[in-house]
Design a protein around this nucleic acid. Structure first.
Lengths: 123, 123
DNA sequence: ATTTTGCGCAACCAAATGATTGCGTATATA
DNA sequence: TATATACGCAATCATTTGGTTGCGCAAAAT
């Protein structure tokens, strides 16, 4: 019995179910800021960290998440890593908005016709 | 000194800093699905829960978050509550995309000019 | 009037998040 | 060659998230 105890080591089962999609990526305000900055110009983690009130490691972790959901791409240059924004992936958010955009545009259309009808009825 | 120990009760400081913005709202896939559904037609929590593989309470919690970030509005009808999508708030995401959209549109513009130049040079 | 239904709220739990510190490695500089 | 710098990774921690169950209240249905 005691042998059994020794035999069964506590395995690190730890099933990780992290959602790593674009929406999770842009959920954090710091990550959104990072995205905006590197969209203008590719930057290294250190350069980025200078603009935020947290450690380089914290920024690196955010970048890691952004990389996992493919919102950023990396480009090595010696010991430095330049992070770029993957605009194509940002488009996914835009795509999700599509049906909603149709809605708020339709709303205006309807408002337009209402106004038109009002105008036509006036005289 | 001992008196001091007794005097300082462990206060429940527990500073709650929950981000309740649109991006946090749409970070969860279930919440995005809820939003899509009620954008088409206002629904009650029970009606919504029927479409998901989780309890009504879980859905209610999601709705609570969506309400807190103003992505949904409620309308009471007796003991039922109909949840509506607040399209105006969804627009905030669209607004954030603006600079990025400009980028990917500019890209196409440049591609267009490249193609044009290629065409002009051909003959 | 009693029971059923629709719903929010509180308590609880496992897992994920956001941040920190310390460490190892590879590249640049002295 | 020795030192400084840039960076990722692992461990750790408090807080948040996403889910559950159980409860109570008000509106409907019986």
């Amino acid at each position: 019995m005691i042998a059994y105890i020794f035999a069964t080591e506590r395995l690190p089962v730890k099933k990780v179910i992290m959602r790593r999609d674009v929406f999770q990526g842009i959920a954090d305000p710091t990550r959104r800021a990072i995205l905006c900055m590197i969209a203008m110009q590719a930057m290294t983690p250190n350069a980025l960290a200078e603009h935020f009130d947290c450690s380089r490691q914290a920024i690196s972790k955010h970048i890691k998440i952004l990389t996992e959901c493919q919102l950023v791409k990396q480009e090595y240059s010696g010991r430095e890593i330049y992070y770029h924004c993957n605009i194509k992936k940002v488009k996914e958010v835009d795509k999700w908005l599509e049906p909603f955009r149709e809605m708020w545009e339709h709303k205006f259309d309807r408002l337009d016709t209402v106004l038109k009808n009002l105008k036509n009825k006036k005289p």
